[in-house]
Nucleic acid binder design. Structure first.
Length: 218
DNA sequence: AGTAAGATCCAC
DNA sequence: TGGATCTTACTT
């Protein structure tokens, strides 16, 4: 059974934390509805000055801005951003305070609160949280209301609470590959920063980002 | 001030 | 394959 996550669990850089989030649980309580997600697919994102390699695919690639401020803050908070004007996507902030980093939660299995998840999304089964937009919708977390919510303290933010729990044992069968929908070189095998549980049916479909296929040596 | 592109999803 | 929908960041 998973244990409550501690802030120190996210002090390392995203590339190191990402695979350890597989099999972890994200529990949210929004509008009185509890939904528990078992994470099956994630992606690491760094930022300017983070780690050995720059990350041209990150929202924090150009340094701190109003939008990506949460990514530079204390680890263990959730960076919630608006994708394509429609979808609220959820990241776990990683790395020391003052260093940008996050792990995008791309897919999950709903293990508690299926009724609430179905009511929020109108979908069922493995599709409930298959893809970051769907995962965000089912979690109930929304941009900009819940950006920066602390998943360690469990402190309420605008009526929402979020908590992370980590597995005692890391998931054994982890696959890696290019990140989904990321443009240019950052979306190629030069950045194999997507991690998923091999064979899990809730993992989202892969697609190249703009210009990524052309830039890929494969 | 205008515009292009975006860590997506769904319908055609 | 294109539209929805809107914010951000870069260009006039």
């Amino acid at each position: 059974m998973p244990r409550p996550a501690e802030r120190a669990d996210f002090a390392a850089l995203p590339l190191q934390v990402a695979p350890r989030l597989l099999g972890a649980h994200l529990v949210t309580v929004v509008d009185g509805q509890t939904v528990r997600l078992r994470l099956t697919e994630v992606e690491a994102y760094h930022g300017r000055g983070t780690g050995d390699v720059p990350d041209p695919g990150s929202h924090a690639r150009m340094g701190p801005t109003a939008r990506n401020a949460t990514m530079w803050g204390e680890p263990g908070h959730l960076y919630v951003y608006l994708s394509h004007g429609i979808h609220s996507c959820v990241n776990v902030v990683c790395g020391p305070d003052g260093v940008a980093g996050g792990v995008l939660l791309r897919a999950a299995e709903v293990v508690e609160g299926t009724d609430a998840a179905e009511a929020r999304s109108g979908r069922t089964g493995r599709d409930l949280a298959r893809g970051p937009g769907r995962l965000g919708q089912v979690s109930g977390l929304r941009y900009p209301l819940h950006d920066g919510i602390d998943a360690i303290s469990g402190e309420a933010l605008h009526g929402a609470v979020a908590r992370l729990l980590l597995p005692e044992e890391p998931v054994a069968d982890v696959a890696t590959g290019p990140r989904v929908g990321v443009a240019g070189l950052a979306g190629t095998h030069a950045y194999p920063w997507r991690f998923w549980i091999q064979g899990d049916r809730t993992v989202s479909a892969f697609r190249w980002g703009r210009g990524a296929a052309a830039a890929s040596p494969d």
